[in-house]
Structures are given as structure tokens and as C-alpha cells.
Nucleic acid binder design. Structure first.
Lengths: 210, 210
DNA sequence: TCTGTTTCTGACCATATGGTCAAGATGCAA
DNA sequence: TTGCATCTTGACCATATGGTCAGAAACAGA
């Protein structure tokens, strides 16, 4: 939305426009779904002519692919929060914090991701089978180690991970419902704080920590 | 898919066909989203000519509306599991069981619901503001009472409800991801049992029960 | 059997949409 | 300034889709 009046350098033009388009696309895909999104809508949202989108992204599917990939990258960043922790309370607590932060900062991205998975992951199936699976296997092993060391209650690590994903992403994916139940107002700073604290409190206590 | 060869009575025809169409529509809407779903796809899935769909449901939107409403009804049924419980452990435990059962039996419906909410609830906004809000207020009060009576750990009832919704619906909405991480196989009976047990275990312990 | 009602369906239509293209504008290095 | 590459865009096209309709078929009560 901030049409920079300053003349752009060649290098910047491409980066700038791609970023603008991707941001618009993320929002439109999240709000309308892949099928409901139109290149015209995205173009309008980006403030560019439709033909210009096709100059940077050959097809709607390619644009969508980029959006999904970018989200996956962000998702992976949060994953690191769990590593290098001194123990389960710190590791899982930090992971919850990181994922709640992502839900707050990238609600559109989270919705696109959810939509993609719900539709059978036509675009990121390979990522699920490689990167995500590997990460999951590693984290399951880590949690199992913590359990074996008696540092937390024995629980099924896989289902614990699902619970972490579900609870944190819920605040992004179902933000509209939450907003409605919050008197029509989006969560403010304090309410987000309370949400993250609640999740951490229940989950950590649920696995014998806190 | 069970095309009954027996000749149908007038009354039955309508009910039968509507049910067939609704089942097909539920699946297609879940897998393709509202925008991606086409009347032709739904017709093929139902084994009926497209024009026949329009005989029973004037527009795609009307058909979609029916699907969403039906799901909401099912959703409300599970809500009753929480009432009439003698205490928090029984009430919340039964609610989790009921919602997990719904996730297993109506995965398509759950996805349609999730999609609808993610897109801003264009069709069931009024339900969110009335029925759902009322139910939520009642349940929050119930949980608060349990807390005041010292029967469970003090937690924010609202966020506890979100956690229950998120964790249980996750098994329906993200079933594809779960299946991928489960070696490409959908959860079997034992695994569903383990999933429900894990959720109950962590949540109940998380709020000071069991 | 006759008649009115409901159900069924192929053919058709208007519109929206993804994508193309050719010509023009703009930046930039020499 | 010149020439080339990159970027921009209005006009255009083929196709897919939601929806219509008129006539046929099936049903049911008299």
C-alpha cells in the first residue's frame, strides 16, 4: 500500500513487486481459498494490473505455490525454538510462544496452510513427506528422551505435537470465530498474552511441568 | 453409492436425493472449498445430472448453506455431552470423547466448517453470534463454577474451550497431514483410541484432574 | 385408464476467469 | 545519446461454470 514515490532501481523493482504481490495473494488466498481467489482480486489488492501479475508469476498456481512455500519456511523457523532448550519446560514453552507469535503475525499464512492441508496438500505433499516428517521424527525422539529421563509425564509425543500445532494455530485459523466470541473485537495485546499463557499453563501442567 | 433398485415412493424420492446430494456436496466442498467446488463435480459424485441438483437446490450457495447448517447441528449435539455431568472430569472428558467421535465420523463436515469460519463465516455469522455465543457463555459459566468450587485448577474457561475445539477438530481438519505422518495410513481403531486418550490425559491433567 | 403433479434431463446461455500478446514505457550501461 | 533489456498494460481470447428451460418421463390418485 505504500507506493514509494522514489524511483526504484532495477534490482529493487522485481523484489518490491514480488513482495507486494505475494502479500496480496496471501491475504486473498486466505480469505477466499485457492478456488475462490481470482487474479483480478489479487491484482486489485496489490494495486497492479492483472497482466502485471502474470509477468512475475506465470500462473495462479505458481503464485499460490510460492505463498505456501514461504509460509512453510516461517513455520520451520519456529521449529528451532524447541531445539537447544535445556529441558522440556523451556523447550515446549518456547515453542508454544513462537507458534502463538506466528499465529498473531501471519494469520493469513496460517489459514492458507490449513486450507492447503485440508484440501489434501496438492502443492506441499512432498514437503510433508520429507521436511516435516523428518522434523517430527526428531522432535518425537527428543520428547521421548525427556520422558525416559523422567523429566516429564509419559505421554504420546506424536499426539503432544498435534496438540501444540492445533492449539496454537487455532488462534490464527479460527480468528474470526474467536473475534466474534470476543464481542466482535480482535484480541488485544493483553488477550494474546492471556491466550499464550493459558495454552502454556494447561499443556505444561498436563505433561507434568510448570 | 447404494442405488436402491427398489422403486421409491414419492416422499422418499425427495428425501433420498437430497441426502445423496448433501453427502456428495459435503465431500466436494471439503476437498475443494466453496470456490473450487463445481456443481458438475458434486453432480458426478452424487451420480446425478447437474440439472437435477438445481431442481433440489436452486443455487450452489443454497446447497452450501444446507451443508454448513447440518454440520452445525451435529456440532451442537456434542455440546450436550458436557451438560448433566456430575463434575469437570466427567463433563470435559465426555465432551472430548464426543468431539473426537465427530472428527472421526464427519471429517468432511468438520473441514467445511473450518473453511467457512476461515473465510469469515459468510454463511453462519448469525449462528456464531447467537447460538454459539450463548452456548459458549453458558459453558464458561459452568467451568467457572467448577473452578470456584475448587473442583479444578483455575484456568481461563474461554481458552480452555478453544483448546478443546482446536485439539479435537485438528484430527479431522488436518487428517491428511496426520495420515502422512502416520506412514500414509489413516488412523486405525487403536490409534484413534490412543489419540482420544492422549488428548484427555493431557487436558484433564492440565486442569488438575484425574 | 385418465389427469394432474412431481421428478428428470439434455441443450443452451450469459458471464467470469485464467491466461496471452503486442506495443509502449522505463531503466541502465556503454 | 543510443541500444538493449526489463517492465508495464489495455485489449483480447478460449474455456469453464452457475444457472435456465422446455419437454419428457414417472408417479399417484380418481
Amino acid at each position: 500500500m505504500q507506493g514509494s514515490p522514489r524511483p526504484l532501481r532495477r534490482n529493487e523493482i522485481r523484489a518490491q513487486n514480488e513482495a507486494t504481490i505475494l502479500r496480496a495473494a496471501e491475504k486473498v488466498f486466505a480469505e477466499a481459498g485457492f478456488g475462490g481467489a481470482t487474479m483480478q482480486l489479487i491484482a486489485d489488492m496489490a494495486g497492479l494490473p492483472k497482466a502485471n501479475l502474470h509477468y512475475y508469476f506465470a500462473t495462479k498456481e505458481e503464485l499460490y505455490r510460492r505463498v505456501v512455500r514461504d509460509i512453510f519456511e516461517i513455520w520451520l523457523q519456529a521449529a528451532e525454538a524447541m531445539d537447544g532448550a535445556s529441558g522440556p519446560a523451556e523447550g515446549i514453552g518456547a515453542y508454544i510462544e513462537a507458534k502463538m507469535e506466528i499465529s498473531r503475525r501471519y494469520p493469513y499464512g496460517s489459514k492458507v496452510w490449513a486450507s492447503e492441508v485440508m484440501h489434501g496438500a496438492p502443492v506441499i505433499q512432498d514437503y510433508l513427506e520429507t521436511t516435516l516428517r523428518d522434523w517430527t521424527v526428531g522432535r518425537v525422539a527428543l520428547i521421548r528422551r525427556w520422558i525416559d529421563e523422567g523429566r516429564m509425564t509419559p505421554v504420546d509425543p506424536q499426539h503432544l505435537l498435534y496438540m501444540l500445532w492445533a492449539t496454537t494455530q487455532h488462534y490464527a485459523d479460527f480468528s474470526h470465530q474467536i473475534e466474534t466470541l470476543n464481542g466482535g473485537q480482535p484480541l488485544n495485546d493483553a488477550e494474546w498474552r492471556a491466550a499464550a499463557d493459558s495454552v502454556k499453563q494447561i499443556v505444561l501442567r498436563g505433561i507434568g511441568l510448570d
